[in-house]
Amino acid sequence: MLMLDVKDVHKHFGQLHVLKGISLQLERGETGVLFGRSGSGKSTLLRCINYLESIDSGEIYVDSELVTPDRAKLRKLRANIGFVFQHFNLFPHLSILGNVTLGLKVVKKTPEDEAREIALKALEDVGLKEKAENYPEELSGGQQQRVAIARSIAMNPKMILFDEPTSALDPELIGEVLEVMKDLSQQGMTMLVVSHEMGFARETADKMFFLHNGKLVEEGPPSEIFRKPKTEECRRFIEAIL
């Protein structure tokens, strides 16, 4: 069952052609890792899937639903797609619990008690149940990112998109976030991750996608990508970061 189907997507920023006809697929339960140099278009592609950026042409389907600018449909779609940001984007005026329950209460109209229960379960999954009453500023970066993941999980999404989830973190905090993501992947969550964490990719990814200058130049399971990359760019990139 196809969860994500990106078909020939083009995107410009003014004169700049950032996505030049990208097509890729992800099956239900798979974890994909998007990688490539900065400016290769990987974050833009991820943001297009959630329509945080519009696309100029092509189509994107999530669980057979077309991603459209129609606002009512888009809200429904977004509620079903988790998005984890590089800079966490937690709500600073809400407690951790408040952060995780807000979407449930406002979007899904979940009653207070039930929302609380779901949120605590999500926080437990990321190992931060005891921080429920704290505020974001009291947490480390790694903890904040785990809360952001819990915020996504709580919405019971069909898929979660991760936009460089560890690149704003101190090196010693990266591990805890990757650990949570690995668990999530093993539990069968469909995930698309923009990341340069090659250890994580090797262990967790089902598919890897290498973007170069707005094009998908190579894709395959980690075993292939790491052992025998087909293109020169991909080989060089992997050599450079390993």
């Binding site: 959630n50 945080l52 606002r71 809200r75 429904k76 779609l77 977004r78 509620a79 079903n80 797609i81 988790g82 998005f83 940001f85 800079h87 984007n89 937690l90 709500f91 807000l102 979407g103 406002v106 979007v107 952001a148 915020r151 919405m155």
Partner: peptide, 14 residues
Amino acid sequence: GRGQWEASVSLGMS
């Protein structure tokens, strides 16, 4: 910040 908008709308909020 823009991040607050993006985090909210990506939860499906209006």
